[in-house]
Simulated assay, not measured.
Amino acid sequence: MKFLVTGVAGFIGHSLAGKLLREGHQVVGIDSLNDYYDVNLKLARLKDLHVDVAAIDLHKKVASTDASCFEFVKMKLEDGKELLELCSVERFDVVINLAAQAGVRYSLENPRAYVDANIVGFLNVLEACRHYPVKHLIYASSSSVYGANKKMPFSTSDNVDHPVSLYAASKKSNELMAHTYSHLYGVPTTGLRFFTVYGPWGRPDMALFIFTKAILEGKPLKVFNYGKMKRDFTYVDDIVEGVYRAALVPPQSGETATEEYVSNAPYRVFNIGNSKAVNLMDFIRAIEKATGKEAVLEMLPMQPGDVPATYADVAALSEATGYKPDTLVEDGVANFVDWYRNYYQV
């Protein structure tokens, strides 16, 4: 099939594109290559997909230099006209929207970036899928939509009407917008609520990256909520496998209907995580073991917009697709540390 992957130079997008190509699919990837974090890391991911980064130009397709069926286009999701034009020419079978302004803490500093990329940008994706119909639109939601929910594990049947960050609110908005387009125009949509993805090629603003860098440099780690945090850390290869499996099984009309709610929309939302809540201090110990160095800890109170724990119920995704994450945190952390040392030559 022909896939469009947005955010293809990002952490998950890069790994997903590689998976799709290995499975024999044709992939067009788009990314704005913005400077939210080191652009060189994004370009290195594209090089890993055999893109000649020197040939990249705004709105122009660049083919991979190997025999794979991959093309890259530098484009912002906010560029609605250009996105429509691309979809009109390519006629994609599946669109996987991973492009977004990420990060809970950054949303406190630059809220407008989240409205532009995550809401306006997603509206343009929906419009493209409406005017040039696809078999399936997969889009990234987030575990952050659960806010400060205390019921564990988090289930897609839980109320998610009380976000505690603008990032979370933008992702909840995506789910509502997707349902509207599924209902009005029959666009088959699946939202995936990602839970704390980690692994090689990760983002520099993520905990594993920050902690590994600090430990290797002998600098203090900022540990919020005095370390009393739990996260459903999920290895990137497990996430990519789940996204791929979900993409091949579009929702059917009425899939989300319940006794309280009736809808004929081809719409659904899944959690995608490891289904194991790991103590933050145990995660730090895994990094210490992988690096062979002891962390210097700076214990701090909870930050605004953060939550003490996340824990995914992935039964629905497993039932629909056979998804079964199996990477141990110790192994995943070791793989990341190996990548980090090789990439940064430390």
Rank of each mutant, 00 (worst) to 15 (best):
L4H: 05
V5N: 06
V8I: 15
G10Q: 06
G13A: 10
A17I: 07
Q26I: 07
V27C: 09
V28Q: 01
D31L: 03
D31E: 09
N40T: 11
K42G: 07
R45F: 00
L46I: 03
L46E: 12
D48T: 02
L49C: 04
V51D: 07
V51H: 03
A54Y: 01
I56E: 05
D57Q: 14
H59F: 14
H59Q: 11
K60E: 12
S64K: 03
T65C: 08
D66A: 09
A67D: 14
E71H: 10
V73P: 02
G80M: 11
L86K: 10
C87S: 11
C87H: 04
S88M: 11
E90C: 06
F92H: 08
F92Q: 05
V95S: 04
V95M: 05
A99Q: 07
R105G: 01
N110I: 06
F122M: 04
A128C: 01
V134W: 06
K135G: 08
L137F: 10
I138D: 03
I138C: 11
A140P: 14
S142D: 13
S155A: 09
D158E: 10
K172E: 11
E175G: 08
L176G: 03
M177E: 12
T180A: 08
Y181P: 01
L184K: 12
Y185R: 05
V187A: 02
T189F: 11
L192Q: 07
F195T: 07
F195V: 12
V197F: 03
W201G: 00
G202K: 04
D205R: 04
A207G: 02
T212A: 09
A214M: 04
E217A: 15
K222M: 05
F224P: 00
G227M: 07
G227F: 07
M229F: 10
F233E: 14
V236I: 15
D238W: 13
I239R: 03
P250S: 01
P251H: 03
Q252N: 09
E255C: 01
E255W: 07
A257T: 15
T258M: 04
E260F: 12
Y261F: 15
A265L: 01
Y267F: 15
S275T: 09
K276D: 05
K276F: 15
T291L: 08
K293F: 08
E294L: 13
V296I: 14
L300C: 10
P301C: 06
D306H: 09
D306A: 12
A309G: 01
A309S: 14
D313C: 07
A315T: 15
A315N: 05
A316T: 08
E319H: 03
Y323L: 08
K324I: 00
P325I: 06
T327W: 13
D331C: 00
D331K: 13
N335S: 15
N335C: 09
N335R: 15
V337D: 04
W339S: 00
Y343I: 01
V346W: 11
